[in-house]
């Protein structure tokens, strides 16, 4: 049996909101360590890897491994009915045909209970080896989101160029072009405002702006985003959860 209680529904609300526009059907794999998901978007360009460790829950138990096949849009409809500050408990039997979601208001005696039908989802599972990256950028997630939104107004592609201590986001469109350069910066008082660039080799990669604009829907999850890049390899965009992560692997565009 699975029983996982979040102190606040807001964490799962944000996670589902970040994923629902990229993937429609997901298997949520529940083990004693927590809940993990691997899913690929319909155009097969973006891979999402979610890990909500047991430590992200107030209480968590899962006696046997359980797979919950969930339709993200339906899950989102139910999740939106709960308040962000409600306690949220996920409950499923050992061979479940439904996931139960219980929202409890902390101040009043109000309990809302929902049941979501499960689906049998046949999904490929890809093995993600430990990847080597030539550049790692840690930056404020809100700053990254604004750059992705701004650059998408010009072009469907966004170029990321990293040299010693700066990252250049470049967009070449039909009616004009634009770029934003950010440099390494340490804010000792507000560390979440800092930009850190770790570089082994310079990077020049191009990505679909549409996918980056789906990835930035994770912004409310974490104040910083970590971007890991290597030539001709998928880039990794990572948002840390209190215990776990939401990762996006995005295939770069390149000429053969």
């Amino acid at each position: 049996m699975l029983e996982g209680k979040f102190d606040e529904a807001s964490l799962l609300k944000k996670v589902i909101d970040a994923m629902k526009d990229s993937v429609k059907l997901c298997n949520f794999n529940c083990t004693e360590n927590g809940i993990s998901v691997q899913a690929i978007d319909d155009s097969r360009v973006l891979l999402i890897s979610l890990l909500i460790e047991a430590g992200s829950f107030e209480d968590y138990r899962c006696d046997r491994n359980i797979v919950l096949g969930l339709e993200m849009e339906s899950l989102n409809k139910i999740i939106k009915n709960g308040n962000a500050s409600d306690m949220l408990t996920l409950v499923a039997e050992d061979s479940p045909d439904a996931l139960n979601l219980i929202f409890e208001d902390k101040r009043r005696d109000r309990i809302a209970e929902y049941s979501l039908k499960l689906m049998d989802i046949d999904q490929d599972f890809l093995k993600i080896e430990d990847m080597k990256f030539d550049a790692v950028v840690n930056m404020p997630s809100a700053e990254f989101a604004k750059i992705c939104r701004d650059m998408k107004t010009l072009s469907e592609s966004l170029q990321i160029i990293i040299t010693k201590d700066s990252v250049k986001f470049n967009s070449e469109g039909d009616f004009g072009s634009g770029s934003v350069v950010i440099k390494s910066f340490t804010d000792l008082e507000k560390t979440e405002e800092s930009v850190r660039i770790t570089l082994e080799k310079p990077i020049n990669l191009t990505f679909g702006a549409k996918y980056l604009n789906d990835i930035i829907k994770s912004t409310p999850l974490a104040s910083q985003v970590t971007i890991k890049l290597c030539d001709k390899q998928p880039a990794l965009f990572e948002y840390q959860l209190p215990s776990g992560y939401l990762r996006f692997y995005l295939a770069p565009k390149f000429e053969d």
Binding site: I40, V45, L46, F125, L126, Y249, L250, A251, K253, E255
Partner: peptide, 13 residues
């Protein structure tokens, strides 16, 4: 610029 699919980069589990 061509857009490769993500599974080209990873092995099936």
């Amino acid at each position: 610029m061509p857009q490769p699919i993500i599974s080209q980069f990873f092995l099936p589990h």
